[in-house]
Structures are given as C-alpha cells and as structure tokens.
C-alpha cells in the first residue's frame, strides 16, 4: 500500500472547499500563488498566514496529515533558507566570522522565504490536490484550456491522457508492490550489494511491470473502442460543472486578500524584502 505518499494525494471530505467548482479552484489557486509572491512585508505575510490557516481549518483535513506532506520538502526549504541567510547583505551586522557575514535582514529574509514556500505548498494542496479528485482537476483543465481548440490544440486528447495517467498511478503502484512482494518471496534482495548488482536486482521487477503496463494499455484501448470512443469531437459530459454562489464568494475573498496584501506592502512595510 502506498500509505507513505501523502503529498499530492486527494483526501476525501465534504467541506465547503471540497465542494467548490474545480475550475474556480484552479483560478483561485493561481491567484493565490500570485498574491503570495506579491507579499513583501511582514504585515502582509501575517495576513496570508492567517488566511491560509482559515482555509486549512475549512477543509477539515487533520493538520497532522498536512505536516506529514511537508516532510519530504523540508530539506529544500532548509537549504534555501540557509543560502539566503549567508548571501544577504543588509545594514545590521549580527555575526562576522571569517568570510561569513550574517545580517539581521538576512535572517528575516530567509524566514520570509520559508514562510513563502510553505504557504505556496499549503495553498496548492488545500485548493487543488487535497480537496479535488484528479478526475475533476483534469476536467477543469480541459475546460480552462478550451479556447486553445481554436488553434487546433488537441485539448481533449491531452486531458484524456492526463486522466488516464493519473488514474493508473495508484494501480501501477499497487502492481509494483505486488511484484516486489512476489520476488521478495523468492528471495530477491533489493537493498544490499553494489550499484551494479542493485540495478540488476531491479530487472525482475521492471520487466513484469512493463509487460503489465502494456497489457493494461492494450485492454483499456480495446475497452474504449468497444464503447465507440473516437476522441473529443461531439462528446458531451455526464457531469456538467456548475459554479455556485460559494465559488464566487471565494473568488471575491481572494481578490480582497490580494488588494489587502498590496495595501499592507505599501502602508505598513515592516522589514520589506
């Protein structure tokens, strides 16, 4: 079971955010990312932290799960912060040691960068991956890219490919686990030996996995043809997405947030980056 993979995984729920229209969620997420990059002063960041916290609470997803998702990204965050701290030149020199100069502004700057990265991850997780099923997400992308059809971009085919790819990730993970188990049961050893012998030990996993992936692709293609699938032209949808009142309210809230961030940047510029 792929129970270790939390980042980017849909978590079932029935919160307001879960029920928002996926198209609106994509727009909201993009706007929110822009707003996070607009924020420059501590005051604006505090507002965004509070807003993100409110959104997280609204999703009703346990905080423990969100934190677990952050774990693999911790190294990137820490490295970014350290690099920023050492390379930033400011006015208040705190530590001077050999060629290392650490300024107060540098520390604040890296703290703000950490906050920004965490906010970015949280925002996309809360609005997109955690609360939207991959199927709805690709549907929404297809809709939003719709205008490109005029330029003969195969938008539907593209989104169908994405849907199928996403749909089969858990299946293939499952399959991989099964094959690993089966070969382990025959005494295969994946964790010891040199680089070459480890690479070789992957053969008994990769060959069955590829064969099964091709078999599945073949079966799926046949199944789709049996149901007369010919591509995007003239295809209608079973569930036509509808925007509700809540969607527009959320959009409004985000726009207000954006305006507030710009205002805070200009009027209360505490330790601006």
């Amino acid at each position: 079971m792929g129970s270790d993979v939390i980042f980017g995984q849909y978590i079932k729920g029935d919160s307001v955010i879960h029920q928002l229209d996926a198209r609106m969620k994509i727009i909201i997420a993009i706007l929110y990312i822009v707003i996070i990059f607009l924020a420059h002063s501590v005051s604006a960041f505090i507002l965004l932290i509070v807003a993100t916290a409110v959104f997280i609470i609204m999703t009703k997803i346990p905080l423990r799960l969100l934190l677990k998702a952050m774990k693999p990204l911790m190294i990137i965050i820490i490295v970014t912060a350290i690099i920023n701290m050492f390379w930033f030149t400011g006015k208040t020199l705190l530590v001077k040691f050999w060629i290392i100069n650490i300024y107060l502004e540098g520390i604040i700057n890296s703290l703000l960068i950490i906050t920004r990265i965490i906010l970015l991850i949280m925002a996309t997780s809360v609005f997109l991956t955690y609360t939207t099923t991959p199927l709805k997400l690709t549907d929404a992308i297809e809709y939003l890219l719709g205008p490109l059809k005029v330029l003969h971009v195969p938008v539907h085919e593209f989104s169908m490919m994405m849907t199928i790819a996403l749909r089969f990730i858990p299946t293939l993970i499952d399959e991989t686990h099964k094959i690993i188990n089966a070969q382990t049961a025959r005494g295969a050893n994946f964790t010891s030996g040199g680089l070459i012998s480890r690479a070789k030990s992957l053969i008994p996993i990769l060959i069955p996995l590829f064969i099964s992936a091709f078999r599945r692709a073949d079966e799926l293609a046949t199944a789709m043809e049996c149901r007369c699938y010919t591509g995007g032209d003239g295809r209608t949808k079973l569930n036509v997405p509808k925007t509700s009142c809540a969607d527009w309210i959320f959009l409004l809230v985000i726009i207000v947030l954006g305006v507030a961030v710009v205002l805070l940047n200009t009027f209360i510029p505490i330790y601006s980056m």
Partner: peptide
C-alpha cells in the same frame, strides 16, 4: 521466505526471465 514458500495471486504476472528454466531457477 525460503522455508515458507508463498505463491501470490495471479503469479503469472511475475514471470520475467528469458526462459521458463531461468525463471524457475530464480528462487
């Protein structure tokens, strides 16, 4: 794992070797 041999569900999907002989010899 050598003492308790386990044949999993649909074990035919785990075959990988060039010949039947090699596959049986893997364990």
């Amino acid at each position: 794992r050598f003492k308790v041999g386990l044949v999993m569900q649909y074990p035919e999907y785990q075959l990988f070797a060039d010949t039947v002989e090699d596959d049986i010899a893997f364990g």
